[in-house]
Design a protein around this nucleic acid. Structure first.
Length: 571
DNA sequence: TACGGTAGCTCG
DNA sequence: GTACGAGCTACCGTAC
């Protein structure tokens, strides 16, 4: 049983903190805040553990204005956190930007890298690795009251004391310093924080105007349907009943309800179906616009939260609001812009997942095609329709995309038939669909072997552990997942690395550019007009260097486009 | 009334 | 036998 005596020293004085940290190059750090938002909430405590001392130091920031000198206690030191993104967001936002330049380690990331299927809270990891049960009853205590009680302070101190013990144990257990996935994720943290803090500029007036237009159209459509058919057009139940009343037959959903999905409605030649499709899209647009307008800060910038490891595959996600699912239509993309005197740069990786699949499966035909600059989406449309490759236009190419991805990730012949029907208007027999799959398999032998091997393994063991080219692990129980995770995950490894390179290069060449959005294979950057060419060059080089690291000799040329808004910078 | 699942929309 | 990965909102049945 540990004694609580000499567990901590609590002060409000920065000088005492500097004195405490002075003799160590490594520090274990945690903070307690009044809430989860680095914009709206405050840091109450900063807890620090110097491994050369027995006790933890607690800096109490109650009613103390944030002192820039606090940073001096951490300068030139390596900081160890549990979930560094959270602590560094606050420390860099409230105290000193230079916190983002420090070398760090993150015990939670080590857990996520080496034990992906376990839980990664400090409590769970301390239990698993040290066999100690931490008392977390104070975690959600009130950290804004003037006088903190002894229980709270002991809790705060133990967080960094156990953090040190956990880190030292993990260091014995895993060789994380050499692990590429850990390195990428660790170095990506400050890059991600900067993206969130900068935010992306919205053309507020245009957004309001757009919302107004959409609302009017929505209300007109809604009133029409309510008056004429007495239905709530947002209710699938009402819509289904109304259609049945009109003598239309509807398929069932998995759960047995009548389906009114767009896939069903678009084949129904009736005004209810057409207007319901329309009103759903309008409502969706209204929701998106309202979320952007609501999220703007006083400078009309949106600060979305980006997650780097929330998905199984390793892909990023964006929330509050999600700015990775902005509709591709002009009026939406034009809303995302740059400050006065700045421009945006846009760059995406062409057909990146197919390039990754080619190298991952060592498919000679696909590699050869890519080396000869053949567009694989055009090629698949050409093979499906019999139309010569050179005559495939942009619209038709767009349709090839889902088929290519579908077949890559194990799409069935039946689903392929559905695609042929809905997007090409071709009625494909089951035999034709199977024949087409066969042609695909014979063309791409490497892909085929990989798919067969994966299916066999899953059938035998019930699951499979997949790995990206950087070594990011995931467990799949369905073969379709097992085909997807390593490819999609490698795409994530690659773009994260590109962002790290770009951020580093901008610092090195003193280019004042900032990434403002990442959309899986696309990077959006904001930069001062007079540095746009330098930034463009660095972005291109950074993305191509990251691609080369994983794709080896498969070329991956990146085009960077300059413009005033997102619409203008698409390729 | 609160919650969770489903359906349906958006994106790569 | 199954293309994959996300977030957000409204509806709707169930539990309290």
């Amino acid at each position: 049983m540990e004694t609580t005596k000499n567990i901590y020293s609590i002060k409000s004085n920065t000088k005492d903190l500097i004195k405490y940290t002075k003799d160590s190059k490594i520090l274990y750090v945690d903070i307690e805040t009044t809430g989860l938002s680095p914009y709206e909430d405050y840091i109450r405590l900063i807890q620090v553990k110097n491994p050369k001392k027995e006790y933890a130091f607690i800096l109490d920031l109650y009613k103390v204005s944030y002192d820039k000198k606090i940073f001096d206690a951490f300068k030139d030191k390596k900081l160890v956190f549990h979930n560094a993104k959270f602590d560094l967001s606050f420390l860099s936002q409230k105290i000193d930007k230079r916190f983002l330049d420090l070398e760090i380690e993150d015990t939670m990331l080590i857990g996520k890298t080496f034990e992906p299927s376990k839980k990664h809270s400090l409590k769970e990891m301390v239990k698993n690795h040290l066999d100690i049960e931490m008392d977390k009853s104070q975690q959600k205590a009130d950290w804004s009251q003037e006088k903190l009680n002894k229980k709270q302070l002991i809790y705060a101190a133990f967080d960094v004391i156990y953090l040190q013990k956990l880190f030292e144990k993990l260091k014995e257990t895993y060789n994380f310093e050499k692990n590429l996935v850990y390195k990428i994720e660790k170095n990506f943290i400050p890059v991600l924080i900067k993206i969130e803090q900068k935010g992306i500029k919205i053309d507020f007036d245009k957004a309001i105007e757009f919302l107004d237009d959409v609302r009017k159209e929505y209300e007109e459509t809604e009133n029409y349907l309510i008056k004429k058919y007495r239905i709530n057009p947002r209710s699938p139940h009402d819509v289904a009943n109304a259609l049945i009343k009109e003598g239309i037959k509807l398929p069932r959903t998995k759960k047995g309800n009548y389906s009114t999905s767009e896939d069903v409605l678009k084949f129904i030649d009736h005004e209810i179906a057409k207007k319901v499709i329309k009103i759903r899209k309008l409502k969706n647009s209204i929701d998106l616009l309202e979320s952007y307008i609501k999220s703007c800060d006083e400078n009309f910038r949106i600060h979305s939260t980006f997650n780097s490891w929330k998905t199984v595959s390793g892909r990023m996600s964006s929330e509050n609001p999600n700015i990775q699912n902005v509709p591709t239509n002009k009026r939406f993309r034009q809303l995302f812009t740059a400050d006065e005197g700045n421009v945006l740069l846009g760059a995406d990786y062409p057909q990146i997942e197919l390039r990754i699949a080619a190298v991952y499966t060592n498919d000679k035909t696909m590699i050869d095609a890519l080396k000869n600059n053949i567009d694989l989406h055009k090629l698949i449309v050409s093979k499906a329709t019999g139309k010569p490759y050179k005559e495939i236009n942009k619209e038709e190419r767009k349709l090839g995309k889902p088929v290519n991805f579908g077949l890559l990730y194990g799409m069935s012949a039946n689903t392929l038939r559905g695609y042929a029907k809905t997007i090409y208007g071709i009625s494909m027999s089951k035999e034709d669909a199977l024949k087409f799959k066969k042609i695909y398999k014979e063309t791409y032998k490497g892909i085929n072997e990989w798919q067969d091997k994966t299916i066999r393994k899953i059938k035998k063991n019930g699951f499979i552990e997949t790995s990206t080219l950087a070594g990011r692990k995931a467990v799949a129980k369905r073969y379709t997942d097992a085909l997807n995770y390593p490819i999609q995950g490698t795409g994530a490894d690659l773009i994260k690395l590109a962002c790290i390179y770009f951020d580093y290069n901008c610092k090195k060449h003193k280019v004042n550019a900032q990434i403002v959005n990442i959309i899986h294979d696309e990077i959006i950057v904001e930069v001062e007009e007079n540095q746009k060419d330098a930034a463009k060059d660095l972005l291109k080089k950074s993305m191509e260097k990251a691609a080369k690291r994983f794709l080896k000799d498969i070329p991956c040329p990146v085009d960077v486009v300059i413009g005033k808004n997102w619409e203008e910078v698409k390729d």
